[in-house]
């Protein structure tokens, strides 16, 4: 029984909920930069919403429940928009 519970708990911990990913972007200096980045991420089905903070140069990505975005995908989208990824942080 204990084993079962432990297993269930483990399974639960593997189930992913919506994620918040904070991406620090370099080269982002105006709202047109922000808009381009927003456009690239809005086209991705995993992405629920997006917040761009020009002050901190951070793009906050919120994914749909059970969805994640790989670092490689994030880097690719930021690069295609014309900018560079400085760091990726997951919450």
């Amino acid at each position: 029984m204990k084993k079962m519970m432990a297993l269930t708990l483990m399974l639960f911990s593997f189930t992913s909920f919506a994620k918040e990913i904070n991406v620090k972007v370099s080269g982002m200096v105006c709202s047109m930069c922000a808009q381009g980045i927003q456009k690239k991420f809005s086209a991705i089905s995993e992405v629920k919403s997006l917040d761009v903070n020009l002050d901190k140069k951070i793009v906050n990505i919120f994914t749909h429940d059970d969805k994640d975005l790989e670092d490689a995908t994030i880097t690719k989208l930021i690069t295609e928009a014309g900018y560079n990824v400085a760091s990726i942080e997951r919450k």
């Binding site: 080269g27 982002m28 200096v29 014309g82 400085a86």
Partner: peptide, 12 residues
């Protein structure tokens, strides 16, 4: 053609 871009922390 974008020949060169420098993406800095606070500049472009």
């Amino acid at each position: 053609h974008l020949l060169w871009r420098d993406n800095g922390e606070n500049h472009q």
